[in-house]
């Protein structure tokens, strides 16, 4: 474990806590893409198939459970919670994400570490996570003004993978024969998708103005 990866995991956890705070405090999920939340639930369930077979550490198992439980809880809230579900931007959250799932799985069948169920699903989860934010970014562009907690949620979610890139660079430089091509290339693509959001987020922070993404 190195400082970059710890910072990445803590930033990821923070993004989830901010999202839970927004939904709990405002009893609203306006501005949040349910499709992105569902994609993340799929990402975690596909990535952590080894949850009960490979024990890495208490920290690793604990965080996997947190990620799976929180993503499923958020999807449940947005679908079934009597108050929260009413604020879902159904008519704005229309990204046809089935293509993202299909393309990620097709790519995982072609490019993976080993052709085993666990490795193919792991690669699938890596590719799917790289594009999982797209429905959310599209929703932000359509929904005009973005409330602070939603903006912070997306910011931390994008920042965590940037820390992971620093972690892979650090490990590549300090560990012999360390390679993470699948996660590394996907992580760069994933972080690049946030580039314009980071730009407008920085502008809104510098000008102390409302975060607004151009349509």
């Amino acid at each position: 474990m190195n400082i970059f990866r710890l910072a990445g995991d803590m930033t990821h956890l923070l993004s989830i806590l901010v999202l839970l705070l927004k939904i709990y405090a405002t009893k609203s999920c306006s501005g949040i893409s349910r499709k992105t939340q569902e994609l993340y639930a799929i990402v975690f369930m596909a990535r952590y198939l080894d949850l009960f077979t490979d024990f890495i550490s208490v920290y690793n198992t604990f965080m996997k459970l947190i990620f799976i439980a929180s993503s499923l809880a958020i999807v449940w809230c947005m679908r079934f919670h009597p108050v929260v579900r009413r604020s879902y931007d159904r008519e704005l959250d229309t990204f046809r994400y089935f293509f993202l799932v299909g393309a990620s799985f097709a790519l995982a069948l072609v490019w993976h570490d080993k052709f085993t169920l666990q490795e193919v699903f792991w690669a699938f989860s890596i590719y799917l996570e790289a594009v999982a934010i797209l429905p959310q970014l599209v929703l932000l562009q359509r929904s005009g003004n973005v409330d602070n907690l939603t903006g912070q949620y997306v910011f931390f979610l994008g920042a965590y993978r940037a820390f992971y890139i620093l972690n892979w660079i650090y490990r590549y430089m300090t560990e012999p024969r360390f390679t993470r091509w699948i996660a590394g290339i996907s992580g760069v693509v994933q972080t690049a998708l946030y580039a314009d959001f980071f730009y407008y987020y920085f502008i809104s922070w510098k000008n102390n103005s409302k975060l607004k993404l151009p349509a």
Binding site: K114, W122, Y164, R180, W181, I182, A183
Partner: peptide, 10 residues
């Protein structure tokens, strides 16, 4: 041991 890619990370 050659750890398969990525399985010690979240």
């Amino acid at each position: 041991t050659e750890q398969p890619e990525g399985h010690d990370e979240l």
